[in-house]
Nucleic acid binder design. Structure first.
Lengths: 338, 338
DNA sequence: CTGAAAGCGCTTACAG
DNA sequence: CTGAAAGCGCTTACAG
């Protein structure tokens, strides 16, 4: 990106070396192939392209952005990037973005309303073309405000009413978990249901409970907890101390399930033999745990890709619709299967 | 960021509303406090600042970047963001960047030389001010080339000769692990040593082996493996099938240690009773596993923060020096301690 | 204390 | 087929 004389490679430096005008160079280098109208004669175009390639010309995004009003930047907000599920979804988003020449900027919001607002402002100040929220809350009006301001965005992983999203079909996922555990004969079951403000938690729990009710298998005990391992452990502790402890636990998240595994062990129970424990998301760790964890697999990478694609279509002015991707059950030793 | 008439808020729109010149507004809004020279009269400055705040003025980074040649963007390259260790380091980097008004852009390189080059070019095309590499390899000349081209960067987590870095003191960390296991009486030990191109793997292994030799406790068996759980499991399998299987295993990474935990279980061995297993990094999961994992704790967040600070000092033209942060041992049940 | 000008690199509608 | 101009929003050295 530096030419022989040490100056940066710009349209001007290319034009000067070729004795052409900067606008001609720009037209050629931006020419969409085969659109009928030619940007320059074949010979001129070839010379320009050759020199640009040779010098490693890369258009300055500042100049282009200032002129076009587009930054080719996409902001991605997540609760935490160190949450594996979000990290994998983000990798899908970033991969798809890269293929379209877009760059992503990510920000942690810690599921905190103030941080979310502050980070969104920061991203908007950077002039992102659009946003992807991985931290939508069912109990917040923030997204409605943003939409009213004309900000373009889509949601990923967690849905919220009235906004386009790409998520797992979590109700179905909850039903798959219930089908698995009820199929194994468990009628005294507990759900570690996550946080009530997240659609993932609510939908997975609802699908699970719904299935048990439909089959006349009674009402599962539902416990709320943070999505992490410590939260799962505490909730499982609580369930196991009941007078009628469950014989099976469904955690709406693998990390919470790992916590439940620990709690079971503390109670002298071996997962897969004395108690069935399962998670959700099928993170890479699930298969590799000392006692492999039954889980509901979700195409996280693909969900991320689709979210980015949905956003670009929305930015292009298209009306877009939410997408639910189907999960699948993966049975392993922690429920005595696999 | 949109004024009453719907147009964007710019220096010009503020200047016009106040009957001032755009340069005056710029001077005031960029005025470093108390630098002697005043950008405008107190009254004018107040009126400008008030209106800017009221309208939510945010300077357009395209305009500013075009003019100043600085983007206020920092590129961060890591093997994978879905690796928890890198995700936590990245969170530290991003936090420190935010405090300085910088924005980070991250990219996965998958520890692949071609991807690394391609992603670096992409970041440079975005005109980042500097780069942070979390994926340095001991066997690559790529960083030397970049430095020769005048690109500014620092390394994080993994070091490489001749370039400034912020890393754990991994040789010391390896020694701490050895001290712990030898202190428990283990003389037949195996090291799951990771990949030979990463300084983390090499230094941790070297520190461990060095300690055993210094104490006349013999030579540990050293196995190479990928840094993930599957790799750790395979390496542990190999160690346990030896005619003289180890009584203790040190994995240079928690995820590999979790794999070793699984392999031990397959062999009917209970970690902490029949065999001692420990990891490195003390990721949040370590404390929460069914059998809590002994590990060497590393200040990942702080390492990230320091790397960003080192880069900004380097960008300011300062000569910078590498930093090694001290790790600490955390003894838990997996080695029969804790 | 404030204004005016120049120019960073780019794209685009227009002229010839 | 190619050139010339305008202008996106900003900062900065200079003039008054």
């Amino acid at each position: 990106m530096v030419d022989r004389k040490g100056g940066p490679v710009t349209l001007r430096s290319i034009a000067d070396q070729l004795g052409l005008h900067v606008s001609t160079v720009s037209r050629v280098l931006n020419g969409r192939d085969g659109d009928g109208v030619r940007a320059a004669s074949g010979d001129t175009a070839t010379r320009i392209r050759r020199l640009a390639a040779e010098l490693g010309y890369r258009p300055d995004p500042h100049g282009r952005g200032l002129r076009t009003g587009r930054s080719e930047l996409v902001g991605v907000l997540v609760p935490r990037l160190s949450d594996l599920v979000l990290a994998m979804i983000y990798e899908g988003i970033d991969e798809a973005a890269g293929e379209l020449g877009l760059t992503t900027i990510t920000a942690n919001t810690l599921d905190d309303e103030q941080v979310r607002r502050q980070r969104t402002r920061m991203l908007l100040a950077r002039r992102v073309d659009g946003l992807i929220f991985g931290d939508a809350r069912l109990d917040s009006g923030f997204l409605d405000e943003l939409a009213a301001d004309g900000v373009r965005f889509v949601l990923v992983n967690r849905r919220a009413d009235g906004h386009p999203s790409v998520t797992p079909d979590d109700r179905l996922g909850g039903r798959l978990a219930a089908e698995h555990l009820l199929g194994l004969g468990h009628t005294r079951v507990a759900v570690i249901g996550g946080e009530p403000f997240a659609s993932t938690a609510v939908d997975r729990t609802a699908g699970f409970v719904e299935y048990y009710r439909e089959h006349g298998a009674g009402d599962p005990v539902v416990l709320r907890s943070p999505f992490d391992t410590a939260g799962g452990r505490a909730a499982a502790e609580q369930a196991l101390r009941r007078p009628d402890p469950p014989t099976a636990i469904f955690a709406v998240n693998d990390f919470a399930a790992i916590g439940a595994l620990g709690a079971a062990r503390d109670h002298g129970l071996q997962a897969g033999a004395d108690i069935a424990i399962m998670g959700y998301n099928d993170t890479p760790l699930a298969a590799e745990l000392p006692i492999p964890l039954t889980s509901v697999a979700v195409p996280m990478h693909e969900i991320g890709r689709r979210a980015l694609e949905l956003l670009t279509r929305s930015l292009a002015g298209e009306e877009v619709r939410s997408q639910r991707l189907a999960p699948t059950l993966v049975a392993r030793a922690s429920t005595g299967a696999g």
